[in-house]
């Protein structure tokens, strides 16, 4: 997996490159907007991570340029102080995700994995399946080993997101942004309570626990036997 990082702050760049390489990615680093745009147009990458504020050409312009030449490489925008209007502009310009500095590395990693996954499965699915847990997207039904559950709409949405990102770490912020669709910072870990409620429904009566907590990062829905 090749990742292009366009970031002018060398300490942030080193931190990201080091972390990504440790996690098995091949990373190329461009130090300014010009170099970044030329690399992004001439080479093929799986994901582009681009800082908003860059010398010569800013991050949003790079993405707009790429999109205008039909380059659909998933792009993750980094920004110093992310506020909602910035986020909206970033996504409007063609960015696929938006991350505010400072961020935890696990957050970045989880988002990159989500972007890569999105690339894999863009085709419309009608059924999701993890081990014996099944979700019928058309009928809005969830069942495990044939027993169906009654889920609240939000629980359904939460499970759907987790199942779509099965096998990946999903952070609390990602859940807030994608399931509740609010960008905010809960003061208490309400998300944990929602997760444990969901766990009660889908995991409680089964020996195989599908929904696990990843310490210091978030959650992951996966089939423990497939690893």
């Amino acid at each position: 997996m090749r990742i292009l990082l366009i970031e002018d702050d060398s300490s942030v760049a080193d931190y990201i490159v080091k972390g990504l390489v440790q996690n098995g990615y091949e990373v190329e680093h461009a130090v300014d907007g010009k170099q970044g745009l030329s690399l992004a147009t001439n080479e093929v990458y799986n994901v582009i991570i681009v800082d908003r504020m860059l010398p010569f050409i800013d991050g949003l312009t790079i993405i707009e340029n790429l999109r205008s030449i039909e380059n659909r490489t998933p792009a993750l925008i980094l920004s110093a102080l992310g506020e909602v209007d910035d986020r909206v502009n970033g996504l409007k310009a063609g960015g696929d995700d938006y991350l505010v500095k400072p961020f935890a590395f696990v957050e970045l990693l989880a988002r990159i994995e989500a972007l890569l996954r999105r690339q894999d499965s863009t085709s419309a699915q009608t059924k999701l399946k993890i081990a014996d847990l099944e979700m019928d997207l058309l009928a809005h039904k969830v069942s495990r080993s044939g027993t169906s559950f009654n889920l609240q709409p939000r629980e359904y949405k939460l499970l759907e997101y987790l199942m779509k990102h099965a096998g990946q770490v999903v952070t609390r912020t990602m859940l807030l942004e994608n399931v509740w669709e609010y960008h905010f910072d809960p003061q208490t870990n309400v998300i944990d309570v929602h997760i444990s409620r969901l766990r009660q429904k889908i995991d409680k009566d089964f020996e195989k626990q599908l929904l696990s907590t990843v310490r210091g990062a978030g959650y992951m829905l996966h089939d423990p036997e497939t690893e």
Partner: peptide, 19 residues
């Protein structure tokens, strides 16, 4: 208004109330 900010503000109040 800004929906995220409004959400955050009222969420903080409810959060305190529950605490």
């Amino acid at each position: 208004g800004d929906r995220h900010l409004i959400f955050q503000a009222f969420a903080n109040v409810i959060d305190n109330a529950i605490k």
